[in-house]
């Protein structure tokens, strides 16, 4: 075994441990939250706080087991995940920026422009991921991606708002953009 894979295994089991702790915390938080739900059981004997408490308890228990598996040699019966061993985080950041910008801007600049921006940012992330390096910012390419994004988002907007009468926000009240 090379030191590289050993290092990888170490970081994976650290991730597994973190995940287990996360599940445990979530479970405990749910149990605590359940005690704050008033129990008005009526005829049934179990009220609205019963299932939350149960789900919280089972999740806590699962968390403990996940931690135990992580500490005793890693998850059982696990397939090696697809793709690269380490994540390409700068590409991830581009796509995340696109998705969050979309959430922040959709009501102000409208569906079409907001989705166009999200599309171009996501494409930028995916393209740098293909090259596996950040590369210099190619303005021409970015404008081309914006245009393609617009060419997808605009017809989608028209189709859903005009044909199917689904409410999507526009920049203007004309219904076209």
């Amino acid at each position: 075994m090379s030191s590289d894979t050993a290092l990888n295994q170490k970081s994976t089991s650290k991730g597994q441990l973190l995940l287990g702790v996360g599940i445990l915390v979530l479970g405990v938080a749910m149990v605590v939250g359940a005690t704050m739900i008033p129990s008005d059981a009526g005829y049934a004997g179990v009220g609205p706080d019963f299932l939350p408490a149960l789900v919280g308890a089972v999740l806590s228990l699962c968390g403990i087991f996940v931690i135990w598996e992580a500490l005793s040699g890693g998850f059982r019966n696990m397939d090696a995940p697809n793709g690269a061993d380490t994540g390409f985080w700068s590409g991830f950041a581009w796509m995340s920026a696109g998705l969050l910008a979309n959430a922040a801007l959709i009501t102000t600049i409208g569906f079409i422009l907001s989705c166009t921006l999200c599309f171009a940012l996501a494409v930028r992330g995916l393209r740098t991921a293909e090259l596996e390096k950040i590369g210099s910012f190619n303005g021409k390419q970015f404008i081309k991606d914006l245009l393609i994004g617009f060419a997808i988002a605009a017809p989608v907007y028209w189709m859903f708002t005009k044909l199917l009468a689904i409410n999507l926000p526009g920049l203007t009240a004309t219904g076209w953009i």
Binding site: M95, I106, C115, R127, G149, L168
Partner: peptide, 16 residues
């Protein structure tokens, strides 16, 4: 890149 980014547009339609 266009495929996955395009999926995000449709995801927005569905959720929003």
């Amino acid at each position: 890149p266009y495929l996955y980014a395009g999926i995000l547009i449709f995801a927005t339609v569905g959720v929003y």
